[in-house]
Protein backbone atom coordinates (compact mmCIF):
# COMPACT_ATOMS: atom_id res chain seq x y z
CA UNK A 1 0.00 0.00 0.00
CA UNK A 2 1.39 3.42 -0.88
CA UNK A 3 2.32 5.71 1.97
CA UNK A 4 3.00 9.38 2.31
CA UNK A 5 6.52 10.78 2.28
CA UNK A 6 7.49 11.72 5.87
CA UNK A 7 8.81 15.06 4.61
CA UNK A 8 5.95 16.26 2.37
CA UNK A 9 2.46 15.41 1.17
CA UNK A 10 3.52 13.32 -1.82
CA UNK A 11 3.22 9.56 -2.04
CA UNK A 12 6.35 7.50 -1.57
CA UNK A 13 8.20 6.22 -4.54
CA UNK A 14 8.01 2.46 -4.87
CA UNK A 15 10.62 0.79 -2.67
CA UNK A 16 11.65 4.06 -1.04
CA UNK A 17 10.74 5.67 2.24
CA UNK A 18 10.52 9.04 0.48
CA UNK A 19 8.70 10.60 -2.49
CA UNK A 20 10.56 10.91 -5.80
CA UNK A 21 12.05 14.33 -5.00
CA UNK A 22 13.23 13.52 -1.49
CA UNK A 23 14.40 10.14 -2.72
CA UNK A 24 16.52 11.83 -5.42
CA UNK A 25 17.83 14.26 -2.80
CA UNK A 26 18.88 11.36 -0.60
CA UNK A 27 20.71 9.73 -3.52
CA UNK A 28 22.48 12.99 -4.31
CA UNK A 29 23.50 13.30 -0.65
CA UNK A 30 25.04 9.83 -0.71
CA UNK A 31 26.77 10.51 -4.01
CA UNK A 32 28.28 13.79 -2.83
CA UNK A 33 29.52 12.39 0.48
CA UNK A 34 32.68 10.85 -1.02
CA UNK A 35 33.64 14.25 -2.46
CA UNK A 36 33.12 15.95 0.91
CA UNK A 37 34.99 13.19 2.75
CA UNK A 38 37.99 13.51 0.43
CA UNK A 39 37.89 17.31 0.50
CA UNK A 40 37.42 17.87 4.23
CA UNK A 41 38.18 14.53 5.89
CA UNK A 42 34.73 14.62 7.40
CA UNK A 43 32.39 11.93 8.82
CA UNK A 44 28.78 11.21 7.73
CA UNK A 45 27.01 13.03 10.54
CA UNK A 46 29.25 16.09 10.40
CA UNK A 47 28.67 16.07 6.66
CA UNK A 48 24.89 16.10 7.08
CA UNK A 49 25.11 18.96 9.58
CA UNK A 50 27.41 20.92 7.28
CA UNK A 51 25.23 20.38 4.20
CA UNK A 52 22.04 21.41 5.97
CA UNK A 53 23.73 24.62 7.14
CA UNK A 54 24.81 25.70 3.64
CA UNK A 55 22.60 28.23 1.91
CA UNK A 56 23.48 26.69 -1.48
CA UNK A 57 21.81 23.40 -0.42
CA UNK A 58 18.38 22.70 -1.87
CA UNK A 59 15.34 22.58 0.42
CA UNK A 60 14.72 18.87 -0.20
CA UNK A 61 18.39 18.08 0.49
CA UNK A 62 18.25 19.95 3.82
CA UNK A 63 15.00 18.21 4.78
CA UNK A 64 16.47 14.75 4.08
CA UNK A 65 19.71 15.63 5.93
CA UNK A 66 17.71 16.72 8.99
CA UNK A 67 15.54 13.62 8.79
CA UNK A 68 18.53 11.31 8.59
CA UNK A 69 20.17 13.09 11.51
CA UNK A 70 17.01 12.82 13.57
CA UNK A 71 16.70 9.14 12.86
CA UNK A 72 20.35 8.72 13.76
CA UNK A 73 20.81 6.75 10.61
CA UNK A 74 24.21 6.14 9.20
CA UNK A 75 23.55 5.76 5.50
CA UNK A 76 27.21 6.12 4.37
Amino acid sequence: MSRCCPLCWRLNEEGSEYCRYHSDARQSLHKAFSLWRDALEIGWEDYLVAVSARQESGRWVCEVAHHLLEKGKNGA
Binding site: A32, A39, W60
Partner: peptide, 11 residues
Protein backbone atom coordinates in the same frame (compact mmCIF):
# COMPACT_ATOMS: atom_id res chain seq x y z
CA UNK B 1 13.79 20.53 -9.07
CA UNK B 2 17.49 21.14 -9.80
CA UNK B 3 17.67 23.92 -7.20
CA UNK B 4 15.89 22.05 -4.40
CA UNK B 5 17.88 18.86 -5.05
CA UNK B 6 21.25 20.58 -5.17
CA UNK B 7 24.03 19.34 -2.88
CA UNK B 8 26.87 21.88 -2.78
CA UNK B 9 30.39 20.51 -3.24
CA UNK B 10 33.28 22.30 -1.52
CA UNK B 11 36.33 23.49 -3.42
Amino acid sequence: VEIQGHVPIPF
